[in-house]
Amino acid sequence: MVAKTDELLLKVDELHTEFTVGKRRVQAVNGVSFEVRRGRTLGIVGESGCGKSATAHSILQLLPKHGGIAGGSVTYYKDGKDIALSALPRNSSQLRAIRGKEISMIFQDPMASLNPVYTIGNQICENVLQHEAIGRKAARARAADMLTQLGIPLAASRLDDYPHQFSGGMKQRAMIAMAMICNPQLLIADEPTTALDVTIQAQILELMKKVQQDFGTSIILITHNMGIVSDMADDIAVMYMGKVVEYGTVREVLKTPRHPYTRALLKSVPLPGLNKSERLATIPGSTPDPSEMPPGCPFAPRCGLASDVCREEPPEVELGGHHRARCWHTGEGA
């Protein structure tokens, strides 16, 4: 068991990521900053299209050809050295040495992220063989060991199975095995349980906690489910339209949310035991088109507290500790 520390592992500073759609440029990530500390979990929450996946993909520059980092920096701290990941060319050998070895990713849909024509064992071993000087046999043994730790029975014999022979939960376990086999420092999990049922989701979340305790891995957990973040994360970044609108520890953000969007998100989810006659709080309208962003605060058109001042870019207000919110009205409507 590795203790949670304050040691910095990854720093994302004023990150901007753009995509070219036709002749237009769309800002998917618009000045995002956060830190990941060793052994801790950062949850990134937001609705679809808010730029949470684009942020995660930017860290390892796993962006499609028409997208790229347009500004800001991603810094990875390794043994006292700092490596500027965002400055490396996307197919450079340095970046490839980090992908999968130091920082690895789990994607949302395990059905779509495993190659159907290679065996599970083959796909897990590929990662170790790429990064470490070990033989095929040793790699297979490591893969079997990893799957056993992740709770797959008779793992050694299942290495020769193809993805279609695995169930959804098992495929996601195989994905985690693939991501964890090189013992990475940071695991980026992009909606790891969205495609799974609640009981299987509970299994996978328990497993990720166990992996974190055993290996001391830091996790960036991307999800739209506030409940999962509350359960798993130490810190939360709430994103809206490519910006982090609120950031803080789980307790700070969930107990004393200061941004109107965070408050609205928390209220719009029905909780067990809610009075039936009570109406759910809604956020009027829908998210704006990212290519036609309103000036100033992007949430202003849907916000109950919006005033004239919101037409200007809101400041980032420090609220004590690490807690900060990007809003003109952090003191109101609590």
Partner: peptide, 15 residues
Amino acid sequence: AIPIPDPDDSRERIV
């Protein structure tokens, strides 16, 4: 197994 957005949630989870 329902995740609840409350850091003080103390239910025991049956996995």
